[in-house]
Computed example of a mutant assay.
Amino acid sequence: MKLNEYKKLSEEEQYRILWDDGELIDACLEGEVKKLLYAVDNFYVELWSHALTNKVLWRLSFKQGKLLEKYLNKYSAAIVDDLTGT
């Protein structure tokens, strides 16, 4: 499935695909907000939810750009630290 096809689906269908086919790539907790990054086919979905209620606060699907770069930068630094022992 391509990103533009996913975006044309109903919200209910998008969530079904996210839960059934999405692969959790990263998760972090910032205060009361859980930020989750999923990979679905050839694109990503970032989902923010309330940590206690699991109510979805925000959701965005994308292929690249600043939203993805913040995750890539996070892991690039971690890999470098592992390799250098710092």
Results as ranks from 00 to 15, higher is better:
R59C: 02
S61T: 07
G22A: 12
L47E: 03
W19N: 04
Y75H: 06
V56D: 03
L67T: 03
A78H: 11
L24Q: 12
S76C: 06
W19A: 05
F62M: 07
Q14C: 06
L47R: 07
Y44N: 00
A27L: 12
L52R: 10
F62T: 03
E23G: 06
E11N: 05
N4A: 01
S49W: 05
I79C: 03
D26G: 04
C28M: 14
L52F: 15
F43Q: 01
Q64M: 13
Y15G: 00
Y15K: 02
K34E: 02
T84D: 05
K70C: 06
L36T: 06
D41Y: 15
A27Q: 14
V40L: 13
Q64D: 15
V80H: 06
L24C: 10
A27S: 11
V80L: 12
E69R: 08
E12R: 10
T86Y: 13
L3H: 05
K55N: 01
Y75D: 07
L29P: 00
K2A: 02
G31A: 10
L36Q: 14
Y71F: 09
S10R: 04
L72M: 09
N73E: 14
Y38I: 07
K74N: 06
Q64Y: 15
S76D: 08
D26Q: 07
E11H: 09
E13G: 01
I25Q: 11
G65Y: 12
E5W: 02
A39C: 07
L37Q: 04
E69M: 08
K34A: 03
T86G: 05
V33T: 14
E12L: 10
W58P: 00
E5V: 00
L18P: 01
W58H: 11
L24E: 13
